[in-house]
Design a protein around this nucleic acid. Sequence first.
DNA 1: CGACTTTGACCGGCGC
DNA 2: GCGCCGGTCAAAGTCG
Length: 158
Amino acid sequence: MESSNAYHNLHGESSKGFIGLGAENHHVPRDEVNKQLSQRTESFARDGSDEVKPSKKKGEKKIRKPRFAFQTRSQVDILDDGYRWRKYGQKAVKNNKFPRSYYRCTYQGCNVKKQVQRLTKDEAIVVTTYEGMHTHQIEKPTDNFEHILSQMQIYTPF
DNA sequence: CGACTTTGACCGGCGC
DNA sequence: GCGCCGGTCAAAGTCG
């Protein structure tokens, strides 16, 4: 409904949640996460693939699907951005020994997709690709990181 | 008990 | 027309 508003939302949310609080990840020690915070080198790139379907329905929806990828230097695959994600698939990619994970936002009416991929050459680099925009606020408990993340002003060019 | 992960199978598009 | 490929679904299983 609020498609135009949603885009504004995207901008607002972008500056809110980003680097995951891998602290809850028992797979990686906290120290690593802390290091990631100071060593993080994120790069965002907007993909030009707005329309996934060239021509399906006639006057359906000409809403372009925003898709941006983040390159984060982290040892954790799961970058919690403050939303709840449900993994719905995991496939191996050619030219890559590491599999790609597919996540989906588990919110009513929120069909935001996200996929995480690791680089073959650099295992330390995790590429997170977001597809779509959230139509709700972040559903995360006390996020101390939010304050820190608020300092990160990411602007989505369009 | 509820939410989420896992894994194999399935599907639609595309190339040959 | 068939095989390949990337992406998604769905049932079972796991965890808190």
